[in-house]
Design a protein around this nucleic acid. Structure first.
Lengths: 218, 218
DNA sequence: TATCGATATAGGGGATAACCTTAGTTAACG
DNA sequence: CGTTAACTAAGGTTATCCCCTATATCGATA
């Protein structure tokens, strides 16, 4: 029963998939059992292949990583998911873990860490990048009293998604198509976002969104 | 004489470097002669190693890719530089080419394209991702050679005024009131601005305007 | 000088998006 | 087991976008 641990990869960058796959395959006891470049593609595969763990990029075209996690865990509650990200923000780490991921790793980190993280989550543990780990622990231990200084924490996952796409210049219709929801739903989300962020008009919302996207994208 | 083409890689993501390196190395006639994760590091290496081409990520920590291109071409004018990016925007492509890069490639694109692009620039050509392609070539090659590097110079005073107010989040109505002109006139100006900046939709205009306002106000 | 191009102004009319209200379905929580 | 939050979506009104047309001004160039 010395069979290799099966790992599935979901990332929209072909070269990144290559880097991930190579790192995993050359590690003894681990092998890549499949890859996908979109969440939709991954969903079907994951149910069928039943891997031990999945490495998932949070920012995917169409359905994003968070949504994928929620969906797949609904069907496969025991799947260990390691999220990799280029965003070095608590924001995503926290949401990913809340959605049920077992680890959060920044792409910037070295290849060996990927294996460490995978080993840890497969053994039932949790893995967090150092930078994030400390902050998150602080946040949790120090109680919810010390609330976040970032009003974006108020947004739900879906709202944040809509917010981000707004900041990238997509219209309501385009956002609806991308997320496979009605334009009317997008409008509802935007109305809620405006409430939560306390902005008045669609223009102001857009302005905030653009600023935020610019500030976090690098 | 049958020596391999030497390629240098500059990217801050270890796994992405791995993906890039693997793709290049396994291609006959090409090999990776070095890597760097920052522009500073790369500068020294590039002068010393004198590779045939370099693959450079535009978004690097510290000095960004564009600056790196300018700097290195100052010392090695014949180095062929292929820019890879996760941003699928003309904005960066144009700046990169203006800085002297010979190609612009989105990371999303498949591995084989990387080789195609490298081959093309090493042979003295130019490679651009399809999406970006035609428009850009027209714009740059046919363009009056010594054009300003920021297209905002094309805007008339009034247009710039409208642009700026747009970036501050004002609606067409508000802009009209502020400038004591009809909403219709504001719309006309905005249409002209869109033409000049070559953006398609009102959302994109707004996005550019916000970015610009942000970039200049501090 | 007459013509051309760019600028600034503005309207018409159809398509699209924003805004406000209401409402159904889950899923989580105490 | 009710309450709340999240996600979904529709109807109806108003504002904005978008394409076309139009006029007056000013400076440049043929």
């Amino acid at each position: 029963m010395a069979t290799n641990k099966q790992i599935y990869i979901v990332d929209d960058h072909p070269l990144m998939r290559k880097g991930l796959a190579m790192t995993i395959d050359k590690e003894m006891g681990y092998e890549v059992c499949g890859q996908a470049e979109s969440a939709e593609e991954a969903l079907a595969d994951l149910v069928k292949l039943n891997p031990d763990a999945a490495v998932v990029d949070i920012s995917l075209p169409g359905m994003n990583g968070i949504e994928l996690i929620k969906n797949v865990l609904h069907q496969k509650p025991n799947l260990k998911i390691l999220v990799v990200s280029r965003h070095d923000e608590e924001l995503y780490a926290e949401r990913a873990l809340r959605a049920g991921a077992k680890g959060y790793l920044m792409k910037l980190e070295a290849a060996e860490i990927l294996i460490t993280a995978l080993r840890q989550i497969i053994n039932g543990g949790i893995y967090l990048s150092e930078k994030i780990g400390a902050k998150m622990i602080m946040k949790i231990t120090s109680g919810n009293a010390a609330k976040s200084d970032n009003p974006l924490d108020l947004l739900s996952d879906r709202e944040l998604e809509v917010f981000e796409l707004t900041g990238k210049g997509l219209s309501t219709r385009e956002i609806g198509e991308k997320l496979h929801i009605s334009v009317k739903t997008v409008e509802s989300h935007r109305a809620n976002i405006k409430d939560k962020l306390q902005v008045e008009t669609a223009n102001d919302l857009m302005r905030h969104a653009v600023r935020w996207v610019e500030g976090t994208s690098q």
